[in-house]
Design a protein around this nucleic acid. Structure first.
Lengths: 109, 109
DNA sequence: ATCATAAAATATATTTTGTTTACAAAAGTA
DNA sequence: TACTTTTGTAAACAAAATATATTTTATGAT
């Protein structure tokens, strides 16, 4: 494929990383998505999306220090890149424009 | 397993069907998406998305009468169903909520 | 009536994205 | 050391997206 398109789940993950600001790592992203959507997210599914997002340049990551309350592996934190933000905005604007053209649909509440 | 999740391209197609109102068929949908997005849509890709959308209950279809200017096969027109509209709204609202939580992002123009 | 051509849908194969399942690593506790 | 908790990794498979090629159907011209 010539230039990489953001998939549906990838976009949701990317939005969530942005929303979580500096606390976006595997488990927090998983929990946030589950809370907001009622859909269950497996940690494996999430990490494969994260890997793809990083490979495409939509996010950066770094491992944090060893600071967990009760042990555990170090977290890998994700942050959204500029092109990640741009991709989100572009999708958002396109969908907003289109949805407004649909008659008898109530986008405000 | 029951798959009712809308894919990224499927959602774009569904939005476009809604926006085109009573003129949504293969070629018009393809052209509309290409105009709005600069991305190239193959007619085969589009029809496979349409088939999935119909199987999932997000759209209905019917073939039109023979009315083309210069021959050609009859068009199959698509209309969005109620659950199609509901799915679009749900996605729209979720993304709107999330994008507003991202700092330093300008969603208004 | 047959032929050429246009318009649209269908078929098939491949790649990319999404999901599940199982497992491994790192760190604290006892 | 062994145990438990937290998090990440890997591999296999299913579904969605894409590209390319083909077929069906309709009309107008000859």
């Amino acid at each position: 494929m010539k230039f990489t398109q953001l998939g549906e789940f990838e976009e949701l993950v990317l939005l969530t990383i942005g929303a979580l600001q500096d606390n976006a790592y595997g488990v927090s992203i998983k929990n946030e998505i589950q809370d907001k959507t009622e859909r269950k997210v497996s940690i494996g599914a999430l990490h494969s999306a994260l890997n793809r997002l990083e490979k495409k340049g939509f996010v950066n990551s770094h491992v944090g220090g060893a600071k967990a309350e009760r042990g555990g592996r170090r977290k890998r934190f994700y942050t959204i890149t500029l092109i990640g933000q741009q991709a989100l905005l572009k999708n958002y604007q396109l969908r907003t424009d289109l949805i407004k053209l649909i008659p008898n649909i109530s986008i405000d509440r």
